[in-house]
């Protein structure tokens, strides 16, 4: 450590500095998280309570906001629709994204090199810039107005990042492993799934977590792709129709906001370990 070289006096000075820094950061964090507390607090108040006593404790304490929000969002249905899209999108990118990243690294033919460059270059194209023709194309091939179609569109949209990250991770895996697998009689697919894929775990977990937040929170693409059918609304879309109907009716709206952000917060708490250490797997290599 650096501190070892220092004089004891500066060492204790440094320690004081560190404690001050720690206190400062804690205060900053509390301010930063205040919106969550205020949101939660007010979601238990009625309209009167929100108007008169926005900063205080809820009195009377109302749970009825949640019942109404639950119903207005068609929460169970919206939740499962969102879950379905997220699972489908992730499944495709985990399976096909990692396979493609592996292949592009290990079989660098001219065609594959061009494909890889195309994938990289496409990262700079924003979705919003291609959304108009995308609507035409996806309805022509029958991907619109269905949750499955939306999930498949995410495969194409997410391909570049996943392939870029796996491509980088495969680079660090020695050929010997594959050689051994081939000698043992494995074909290309078996070699990939049995030998290589387990080694790509960190990378795959990284992009799957990032993609989960993306798919779960996405608004624009579902809105364009799914059309007006409420049966297949995701949480974000139900949220929009609730806000259109209950404009400025904050009691119901706040409860709805809380239950819509709850799944992502729970997912964060579960995957916390991977997020805080693993989300960065591609950051150094990239």
């Amino acid at each position: 450590m650096i501190a070892v070289h220092r004089h004891p006096a500066t060492l204790s000075g440094q320690r004081h500095g560190r404690i001050l820094l720690e206190i400062g950061l804690c205060v900053l964090l509390l301010i930063g998280l205040l919106p969550f507390f205020i949101l939660l607090l007010n979601s238990f108040k009625d309209m009167m309570g929100i108007a008169k006593n926005i900063l205080g404790w809820p009195n009377p304490f109302k749970l009825s906001n949640y019942a109404r929000a639950f119903e207005k969002l068609s929460y169970p249905r919206s939740f499962f629709n969102t879950l379905l899209v997220t699972l489908l999108g992730n499944a495709g990118l985990i399976i096909f994204g990692s396979m493609a990243g592996y292949r592009l690294n290990r079989a660098p033919t001219v065609f594959n090199k061009i494909v890889y460059l195309l994938l990289l270059a496409s990262m700079a194209i924003p979705f919003e810039a291609v959304m108009i023709p995308l609507m035409k194309v996806s309805s022509a091939v029958g991907l619109t107005k269905s949750l499955g179609g939306l999930g498949i569109c995410y495969w194409g949209m997410g391909a570049s990042t996943c392939i870029f990250l796996t491509h980088g991770a495969v680079k660090g895996i020695p050929y010997d492993l594959e050689e051994a697998a081939i000698i043992d009689g494995c074909g290309p697919f078996k070699t990939f799934w049995r030998v290589i894929f387990p080694l790509l775990r960190t990378t795959v977990v990284t992009y799957t977590i990032l993609n989960t937040f993306w798919f779960w929170n996405d608004y624009l693409m579902p809105q364009l792709m799914l059309g007006g059918d409420k049966q297949i609304y995701t949480i974000q879309l139900s949220m929009r129709s609730l806000f259109l109907e209950y404009y400025a009716m904050w009691d119901v709206a706040l409860a709805a906001l809380v239950i819509s952000l709850l799944p992502t917060v729970i997912f964060f708490l579960i995957a916390q370990k991977y997020i805080l250490s693993g989300l960065t797997a591609g950051a150094i290599k990239g």
């Binding site: 495709g92 096909f96 994204g97 396979m99 493609a100 592996y102 292949r103 592009l104 594959n112 494909v115 195309l118 994938l119 496409s122 194209i125 810039a129 291609v130 959304m131 108009i132 023709p133 995308l134 035409k136 194309v137 996806s138 091939v141 991907l143 498949i152 569109c153 495969w155 194409g156 949209m157 391909a159 570049s160 392939i163 290309p188 697919f189 990939f192």
Partner: peptide
């Protein structure tokens, strides 16, 4: 085709073709 086919098809359809 087995390794690249499906994802490449999706990528070309939803990103490159609209582009």
């Amino acid at each position: 085709l087995g390794f690249l086919g499906i994802i490449l098809l999706c990528f070309l359809t939803v990103k490159i073709l609209p582009f």
